[in-house]
Amino acid sequence: MNIDAWIEFAEGPLFGITFLVLVLGLGRQILLQLYFLGVKKGRRLKRVPWKDITRETLGWAVPIRHIEPGTGLFSTSSYVMHVGLLVIPVFLVDHVVLWESFLGIGLPAIGKGTADILTLLTIGCGLLLLGLRIFRARHRLVSRPSDYVLLLLVLLPFLSGYLASHPAVNPCPWNVMMLTHVLSGELLFVVTPFTKLAHVVLFFFDRISAVHWQLRPGAGDRVAEALYGEEVKI
């Protein structure tokens, strides 16, 4: 099978399968959260402060509010990268065509020039964040190998996509770069539900700690009894 056939396979059946994994995997994460809320509701759950949670979540979409001394570089680069991560895969003109043919959904497309700038910014900001993780001791301390690998993986479709669409700077044959682009994007689809990238849907549910603070009645006594038996000692 030659490379072009591989591209056809990757853009066809493989795309369908990996996209399904993404949707089902993330759907499972959302269902688990809703199931938990349902279980809690059966245990005297007070009101869930949806309004506060939504306001807080949306509040983070306005980055200026949250920039504090010492966070400027991180917040700006992280914000720009996230804008790129959300906008390019969905609204790039080539992707819009793909979505239309695959899902039958017509979406507005952003201009080629805007897309190029945003892509470069996304890659640049991602590399900056990687640099922070590598060179700042505090970032390094909280990082595991997967934090570095996932960041690179996220940037790979952007880099390969940009190179594939700009022959002047592309060192490889077009079809090799294109295959890299498609496969790396699909790899991202597959790993997202099973890694920290799942925060793409969990970011909202991470904020329901007001629900988690509503502890289960009687649980403390049951834990103590199971551990200490009759000999309950404080």
Binding site: G70, R136, A198, A219, G220, V223
Partner: peptide, 30 residues
């Protein structure tokens, strides 16, 4: 003790969610 706490309390979904989504961005440090 951890196992018993997970068995009788509602912390498991919390820990699952946090384990799955912790980005470790260090933003809290400031």
């Amino acid at each position: 003790a951890f196992a018993r706490v997970l068995e009788y309390t509602d912390y498991k979904p919390l820990l699952d969610t946090y384990c799955r989504s912790t980005a470790k961005c260090n933003r809290c440090a400031v």
